[in-house]
Design a protein around this nucleic acid. Sequence first.
DNA 1: CACATTTACTCAAACGCTTGCGTTAGCTTG
DNA 2: CAAGCTAACGCAAGCGTTTGAGTAAATGTG
Lengths: 335, 335
Amino acid sequence: MADVARAVGVSTGTVSRALRGLPGVSEAMRRRILRAAEGLDYVVSPGASGLATGRTGSVAVLVPHISRWFHARALAGAHHVLRNAGFEVVLYHVEGIAERREFFETLPVRRRADGLVIIALSLSESEIARLGGLGSMPVVGASTDLGGHPSVGIDDPAGAAMAVRHLVNLGHQRIGMIRATDEEGVHRGVSQRRLDGYLAAMAECGLPVQQDSIVSAPWGVDGGAQAMAQLLSLRTPPTAVFAEADDVAAGALRTLRRAAVDVPGQMSLIGFDDSPIADLLDLTTVAQPVYEQGLIAGRMLVDAVEQGTIAESRQRLDTRLVPRGTTSAVRRPGR
Amino acid sequence: MADVARAVGVSTGTVSRALRGLPGVSEAMRRRILRAAEGLDYVVSPGASGLATGRTGSVAVLVPHISRWFHARALAGAHHVLRNAGFEVVLYHVEGIAERREFFETLPVRRRADGLVIIALSLSESEIARLGGLGSMPVVGASTDLGGHPSVGIDDPAGAAMAVRHLVNLGHQRIGMIRATDEEGVHRGVSQRRLDGYLAAMAECGLPVQQDSIVSAPWGVDGGAQAMAQLLSLRTPPTAVFAEADDVAAGALRTLRRAAVDVPGQMSLIGFDDSPIADLLDLTTVAQPVYEQGLIAGRMLVDAVEQGTIAESRQRLDTRLVPRGTTSAVRRPGR
DNA sequence: CACATTTACTCAAACGCTTGCGTTAGCTTG
DNA sequence: CAAGCTAACGCAAGCGTTTGAGTAAATGTG
């Protein structure tokens, strides 16, 4: 910046103001400075200006997984608006339980970012409390609740209920559910809410729920496969199954195929998320806007950072049933 | 830091040295300082230390897509080693052609990062040249060649040839190929190399290649579906097809299923990448280590940054054939 | 035309850290 | 025990910006 100032013959203060469009510099001078800066292809040092202003110009995004479709997609959304708002996005990927604890203990984000968005990571009470150590730094959640902090998400119970009602409307009465667990508990909150929705819808429809037709398995295709195997080994297996995520539904489908159970003839299956594999496998599912959640979370954070106001708000986006080939009316007995 | 210094009753210089493990401070004093820093839960300001040292402590990662499996996975790998080496990773996602041009024109990375890793983005000559504007900042490529800069990747021609030879070994002679294009040319280099491998293997096996059985379609499932449709409309369709990516193979498979073409009975299909959907669809494919490419690229960059040396090296990882259910011996005519 | 205002800049302190150099005190050594 | 060393620390000058206070000139007002 000193170079630019010298080239034009003004002080660095003026250059600074000119570059950032602040008043107090004539149009003619501004143009000269801009041109000189261009010529010397000068870029401001974010570190130095951060030192002076106290703002870093970047926001942190915390994700428990990078390569899962959901997280990557939401990240893309958040990145889009953050970058357009002029922020860097620095990525924090907490892979295991250890990294996760370290993140919340040391809060490495503190001096490095102006805000934090957390994507699809269910926090414990104590973790939420630790977030207080961030001081006035705004935090927003996408697809996760963060106590007092603003967040975007979907109405998981409603989505799950939608799935169940779809099956009920097709005449199913014995409806199982496959839950997904992961040791890190990343997914815990969502899982609980989808279970709640399932239970509520079953109750609302006056259907009994058998405890053994709600099975849990590790997140992922293999988990889903295993869970479906368990359901198939029941005395009276369900005629329809709601899997809380497309990934596990995909595994369930594999088991069904291998067991030569006709889908949807003998067994209906519905997933959740509408990930690309749902389309690929022709899997009926409940769609949720993922990219949009990232978008909105990003926008909320930008607003919070720029206005310094951290409005507590909890935005809920709609889910949508996507009927495909894995659900159909229940086979009439004796037909 | 001033607070810590005051609390312990030393100068900030000593605190700085103590915190970073530099010599010149007694063990006793170091412990006192560490404890005080802990107590005040102090973290250094990266901006300020960057100002003083000239290093930012962060590296940039450039990706053309976030939510594609390949990029996300490689990103995860790179993130892992970069973070373990103490770097922040700031994410640059260039979505369209416009963002891409802007990136290379303004090189926003300049003052903000100590290094750059570029993941799976085929650069033009002029873009590579622009990279020179980065001065001495090291750049490494993962799954892309960057002219004089170091890079990791696989031997694409060899991988493609492996796929073709697999089909040949099964007795196939009319072997088509589905190429994937994208308007941004993100994938161009890879696509060209896989074509080269296909052609080389065909020649090596003494098989003629019909121009019309090499078809191109936009990247993705739909593109693959469309491309396979085109192949099926040929006068004499191939009996086996090599798709240059699992994603397009998935689309091809959909078309085959809809057209009631038995796979692999009437048509064999092999993909590339061994992405999760290949497993899901039981698709024969050529596996490449993706996470590892990210890891290695990250490590190369860390070395370059820390040693200040930018060794030009081009590391090539092995590919591996993964036989699954979509390839089989060619049907004997008249049987 | 004298005076008050505005405009366009300059000045310099501050932001939080790093680092070469200077100082002091305690040790070793012949 | 004096001289020479070394280890442990303080000092202060930067690093590249921002920003409030200050200044000089141009403009407006009565």
